[in-house]
Nucleic acid binder design. Structure first.
Lengths: 354, 354
DNA sequence: CTCACTAGTGTAAGCGATTCCATCAGTGGG
DNA sequence: CCCACTGATGGAATCGCTTACACTAGTGAG
């Protein structure tokens, strides 16, 4: 019991209750509730009066009471492995702003440690703490997805397939293909690729499809892939910087182009090349993927995967499902956009960009 | 009503209720609740049996029911102006991980648009949707803070003072002073400063104290500040890159050192200088503030403001207040740590770092 | 002119916990 | 040997809404 004062008569300064609005307009709480939530029939006149009274009193429905009674909580979970990395922060921003605009809350579940995974799903989602969830770049166990879906909790996945739920991702294979073909068309034969680790716990291998696109494009063009040019980094600028610097340090077997799975790594590659005295794009062409703001200053040619839009879109799908509209559980493969800047040029050209 | 089946007897596969645990161990729900929440006396034996039963049934208390009944919601709001900028994402990460570890949820309120401000405070906080809130780099109206505090909602501010609530920030003035003095000691006389805009809506002017530190250090050293060297950018790498490139384009009145209010801007400055053929630190010394991971690859000398730690610390303060411990409402000024790298060197030295 | 419907409203039963109060068995002091 | 007290427990009243169901009055069809 929080406030069991002198029965319901006195309530010094607490926020107004539904009851207060009801008595102010001389109607039952049922009608007031219907008027305010928009569920169930209420005559236009009554509705207007109730809304006015509610506004005047500054009434806002108790979140927990209404959630408990209705089973809906206007709270959507966003589950992701990192918040402090560009892609995730940007997707999160897209999701959160869309949800907020629709009157939903975004609750953040950062699964960096992997430790809280179980409790997040079991405790929060299944216990109706959340109405829906967006899962970013994380692999759910087959049973988990099913469990959530069958409990009627809409799900949407970003950057990795989620059995039975709609999924959004950029066409990574295609992006990898296009990036590589761009370099090949410019005459490059010896192309290095730098991506992330093949897999990290429950998170999706973020760059493997891009790597696959690279490999396919190379073999289609009949170009050999040198073991030495296949770099693996941690997606950071610094990591890529170091890897690429090592790679380029020996002039005799240096690639003429680098395809980095993300712009941050691409920018690191450019810096590394410059630190070795190479000129971009004269001595080395570099292409990335992301449209990271960093790339602009580096003149980085890249492929825009529209991270923010992916987030917005995911949120829309969830909202639509919550509104009762049927949403097909397929994979929504966004096509990425090529952004040509000055970090790539024809092989052997004299420093002028492509 | 959500599930008014055949009275309470049938409940096909829904999650177990407190009642179920109670009947399993043959005790009242009151005792079970006490055992599980740890409030009120329960004999050790009973407690053990209850916990075992709860675990076996996979019982987890309904979030909304317990919030409604107890008035506590285990949900803490994080209010910030951006999520997709390094500092904020990092602080958020620190806050969220600390809260999650303590069993609290972090609800995200991104006030980028400024539009939702009112509703966030009024609707969510005051309606007991949130137990507490961390306000990052945002200025609350004097009345708002008071209203929240008097409603018993713990508040903590990061990066800007919040009347009546504990506040955390790095000592920006001191950091600005030290960064500038570092350059002065190296013999630089003509030092440029690049910071953010003086003020942006309700958010705190993020770099004005750093600028003030710069100005004070310069005047203490008797050095003139050239109007032309006072740059204002938008905190982005690209923005700083452009500004600094313009600044350095005219060789005759070029500063010999740049102090950037953030590492991202400092890195942009370095790139700009390099693009103009300048060598760092031989031709230009650059210092930043942040310890942004980007800085490492650029060899950027910087001052670490420990963004992640600030977040962690803020979360701890909130948790402590929620636990009933008194927390003094003062300003907690963290001292930043100097990180010497290779982007600064004595004026006129031959390329060897400081 | 009835009758089946619908729209508008009220009554009251939950939602699933927490917690106040009463009850009751031990227990150490006087 | 009695009593005030403490620790463990149960009964039942909330917390503040939503909504099933009952009811009334109007409305167009037959």
């Amino acid at each position: 019991m929080i406030a069991r004062e002198l029965s319901a008569t006195r309530r010094p300064q607490g926020p107004p209750r539904l009851k207060d609005v009801a008595s102010k307009v001389g109607m039952s709480t049922a009608t007031v509730s219907r008027a305010l939530t928009g569920r169930g029939p209420v005559s236009p006149g009554t509705k207007r009066r109730i809304e006015a009274a509610a506004k005047e009193l500054g009434f806002v429905a108790s979140y927990h009471a209404s959630s408990l009674a209705s089973g809906r909580s206007r709270n959507i979970g966003v589950v992701l492995p990192y918040v402090d990395r560009w892609f995730f922060a940007t997707v999160l921003d897209g999701i959160a702003s869309t949800l907020t605009a629709a009157g939903y809350d975004a609750a953040l579940y950062n699964l960096q440690g992997e430790n809280f995974r179980e409790s997040v799903l079991t405790d929060f989602l299944l216990r109706k703490r959340l109405d829906a969830a967006a899962v970013v770049s994380l692999r759910l166990a087959p049973g988990e997805t099913e469990q959530l879906l069958s409990a009627g909790i809409p799900l949407v996945g970003i950057g990795g397939s989620l059995e039975g739920a709609p999924t959004i991702s950029v066409d990574d294979l295609n992006a990898g293909l296009r990036a590589t073909n761009h370099l090949i068309q410019l005459g490059h034969c010896r192309i290095a690729f730098i991506g992330g680790p093949p897999e990290a716990g429950r998170s999706f291998p973020m760059s493997s499809d891009r790597r696959r696109g690279f490999e396919r494009a190379m073999s289609t063009a009949g170009l050999p892939i040198h073991e030495r040019d296949q770099l693996v980094s941690d997606f950071t600028f610094l990591g890529a910087y170091q890897q690429v610097k090592n790679l380029l340090a020996e002039p005799e077997q240096r690639p003429t182009a680098v395809f980095a799975a993300t712009d941050e790594m691409a920018a690191g590659a450019i810096l590394a090349a410059r630190d070795l005295g190479l000129e971009i794009p004269r001595d080395l062409s570099v292409i990335g993927i992301d449209a990271h703001p960093l790339g602009e200053a580096f003149g980085l040619t890249t492929i825009d995967q529209q991270a923010h839009h992916q987030g917005t879109r995911a949120a829309q799908l969830l909202l639509r499902q919550l509104a009762g509209e049927p949403v097909t559980a397929g994979h929504e493969l966004h096509r990425a956009h090529f952004i040509a800047r000055s970090s790539t040029a024809p092989l052997g050209s004299n420093s002028s960009p492509a």
